[in-house]
Nucleic acid binder design. Structure first.
Lengths: 188, 188
DNA sequence: TCTGCCATGTAAATAGTTACATGATTAG
DNA sequence: CTAATCATGTAACTATTTACATGGCAGA
């Protein structure tokens, strides 16, 4: 978590709220987190000297937007973490758990839940593709830094595409017909 | 977590250790967890009446294998959870975070880490495919219950396949060559 | 003999969620 | 005038990891 925030701040300074927006909703593809956690983490990192906070002068009299900036120490910390090998993200698939014991529920219950998740994943894929279109229109003309960021996004797009393909497969095997009969968006 | 354990116990009674084995290592595709967490969770569920524990008579004098069995109440609890809509699993991608700030490290550092993860995902895919071969050799001849369990596994296989495709894409874009091990493991 | 697996746990620390709280601004 | 969004936080709770602890049994 710490490092996800530092990585965002390494791109540009941001307020807690901006980081939260990036970590939440359909477009999030790095690290989902609640605003409470982000604010707490930011304050902790400020105490450790990884970031500095400047009271950003805003228009009205809102709760004083605090813009956070990564320090040399924070950059160093982040670089160290990147260099040190990390584990794969632990697997946690509530939907797969539901399927494993799916015989305890009615087929309608299962297919309704599959449909809900399918729509959520489709929504997410569309949001991600929009980000790709907006920020990485021409993938062959990117700087090395942009290539890496593009690949991070491509990874999430690949993930969501795999989900949609799996929903198709599931529907076929279970003999379900999902609501909207459109094909899954093409990936690649 | 609770429900992942209950779902496994709904298939057949098991000891904490057996559940742990299922939730750990390359073949895990439901819910990764440490043994500490599983034992604690099992004891908690025993207190709540969702499972019963019987001291399984084992061969030697080992710490007395405790076999857990799901109760009617536990089944009801699990069925209720399956029926109630759940959120998508929150996104947490350390590798994507590393790429986002990848310019802070050397290209070799990045490509080494990509290669490590690629190998781990390949290992995982192989373990999953072995499970599919072992338990679901003929997907067209499965009971409804088995179909659902097969799909849970297929989901994980789809995930790992997407990872490997993404590593290919990354290698191409970054001009990295993977799969050239120093000591060629190509043999029978 | 040594390593690794079987088999269970306690205790402490860190990570993450949920509930509660406040108040300004903007768009319909 | 109402709802959503901007913007920040505290407190309590739940989930998860890490470190410590024990001891038998099997195979090289």
């Amino acid at each position: 978590m710490t490092y996800a925030i530092l990585a965002v701040l390494a791109q540009r300074p941001a307020s807690g709220y901006e980081i939260f927006k990036r970590f939440e909703g359909a477009g999030a593809y790095l690290w989902q987190a609640t605003h409470q956690q982000i604010y707490r983490e930011l304050n902790g990192m400020e105490a450790l000297g990884y970031v500095t906070a400047t009271a950003g002068a805003t228009c009205g009299q809102r709760p004083a937007r605090r813009v956070h900036r990564i320090t040399e120490q924070g950059l160093q910390q982040l670089a160290d973490w990147i260099a040190e090998p990390c584990d794969l993200a632990p697997t946690r698939e509530p939907l797969a758990v539901k399927l494993l014991a799916g015989h305890l529920a009615s087929p309608q219950t299962i297919s309704r839940e599959l449909e809900r998740h399918r729509l959520a994943h489709r929504r997410k894929l569309l949001a991600l593709q929009k980000q790709a279109d907006d920020h990485f229109a021409d993938p062959m003309a990117l700087s090395t830094q942009q290539q890496l960021q593009y690949l991070a996004l491509r990874r999430a797009i690949g993930e969501e595409t795999a989900w949609l393909a799996w929903f198709e497969e599931s529907a076929k095997l279970l003999g379900i017909r999902f609501g909207t009969p459109e094909r899954a968006p093409i990936h690649g």
